[in-house]
């Protein structure tokens, strides 16, 4: 067992330091790059917090939709093939809901400030 602090705590401490102490002092292109870097650390923090629960429910939905077992990658490949062949489509019970939930869970990690995501959070 690895010791504390957790990866999440470490990354968050570094991101907060860069955001609060360093970013105000850096101008120009390096300032832009620093903000991208801070965004990346924030994304990793969100992924560490959210991805496991999201992946678990995604896998459960995929197994129910496909009636098959496998890794998340295998299940997504199988669903992709069925959509491409037309075997399942938006009229297939559960498919729109699955695609929406999976996409919302990705945005919660990737870009929670994206306007389309914020709008859809409110219209669920």
């Amino acid at each position: 067992m690895q010791d504390e602090p957790t990866p999440t705590e470490l990354i968050k401490a570094v991101a907060d330091f860069l955001r609060n102490e360093i970013a105000p002092a850096i101008k120009g292109h390096n300032g832009f790059k620093l903000r991208v870097g801070i965004n990346a650390l924030d994304l990793v923090t969100r992924q560490l917090a959210l991805a496991q629960a999201g992946d678990t429910t995604e896998a459960a939905r995929l197994k129910a939709l496909l009636g098959a077992d496998g890794t998340l990658m295998e299940l997504n490949r199988a669903l992709s093939e069925k959509i491409a062949s037309g075997e399942v489509d938006l009229t297939t019970p559960g498919l729109p809901e699955h695609l929406w939930q999976t996409t919302m869970d990705k945005l919660a990690v990737d870009q929670p400030n994206y306007a389309s995501y914020k709008r859809e959070l409110g219209t669920k």
Binding site: L90, Q111, S116, E120
Partner: peptide, 17 residues
């Protein structure tokens, strides 16, 4: 990591809730 932005936009176009 911005590809998912286009996924939500595609769903908004093709499978609006």
């Amino acid at each position: 990591r911005r590809a998912s932005e286009t996924e939500i936009d595609l769903l908004r176009l093709l499978a609006p809730r």
